[in-house]
């Protein structure tokens, strides 16, 4: 008889008490290579109102497409200054912002390369378990046949791709809409 995974519960409204100490809104340590981006956005609820109490966690590969994890056995370079983990809390206006590098591509199903992407977990009051989504980078030709993006209906894929902004080439905007016609695509990874 095997054990069963502990039931997920909401982070509630007061998660900042326990989670703020580990904010990582700049993922770039010393000597890290890759194109740098500031990624900013807002989280909106089903009424279109900004969510003031959400936390996003980011997981990504380095610029060579290597995860800092023992199960990534690819012969690619690890960079000690890049762990690949980020954590940001939204502001009262539902805004978040973090600085990172564009990851390289990593292998996907059947050895097919994946387009550069960030894996994102979202926690907040009202969510009994986390939401899982991804952020892809604009104007990357690899997006067109990414093995995960192509599982999404074409009209909804744009919710997963950040947009360029007036803030310059290094600033991207990616919003999270929890409900509504432009609802962000969330993934089922068996939670």
């Amino acid at each position: 008889m095997s054990l069963q995974t502990t039931t997920s519960q909401t982070v509630g409204p007061y998660f900042g008490i326990g989670m703020t100490w580990l904010i990582r809104d700049n993922l770039i340590g010393e000597g890290v290579s890759g194109d740098r981006f500031t990624i900013q956005g807002r989280v909106f609820d089903g009424d279109g109102l900004p969510v003031p109490d959400a936390i996003l966690e980011i997981w990504q590969a380095n610029a060579h497409g290597k995860y800092d994890h023992p199960e990534d056995t690819q012969r690619k370079l690890l960079e000690p200054g890049f762990k690949g983990y980020g954590r940001v809390l939204v502001s009262h206006e539902g805004m978040f912002r973090f600085v990172t590098i564009k990851p390289g591509s990593v292998p996907g199903p059947k050895g097919k390369e994946q387009a550069p992407h960030l894996a994102i977990s979202i926690f907040m009051r009202g969510l009994l378990k986390r939401l899982v989504t991804r952020m892809y980078f604009p104007d990357d030709p690899r997006n067109a046949d990414d093995p995960i993006l192509t599982l999404v209906e074409p009209e909804r894929r744009s919710t997963l791709i950040a947009r360029k902004t007036a803030g310059g080439a290094g600033t991207l905007e990616w919003n999270v809409l929890l409900q509504g016609p432009d609802e962000t695509v969330f993934f089922d990874v068996g939670l």
Partner: peptide, 19 residues
């Protein structure tokens, strides 16, 4: 609180990858 924050569209199942 889950009423205005839970997704309304079905989640998209994806296979496990290295990510």
């Amino acid at each position: 609180s889950s009423r205005k924050r839970a997704p309304t569209k079905p989640l998209v199942p994806i296979p496990f990858t290295l990510t």
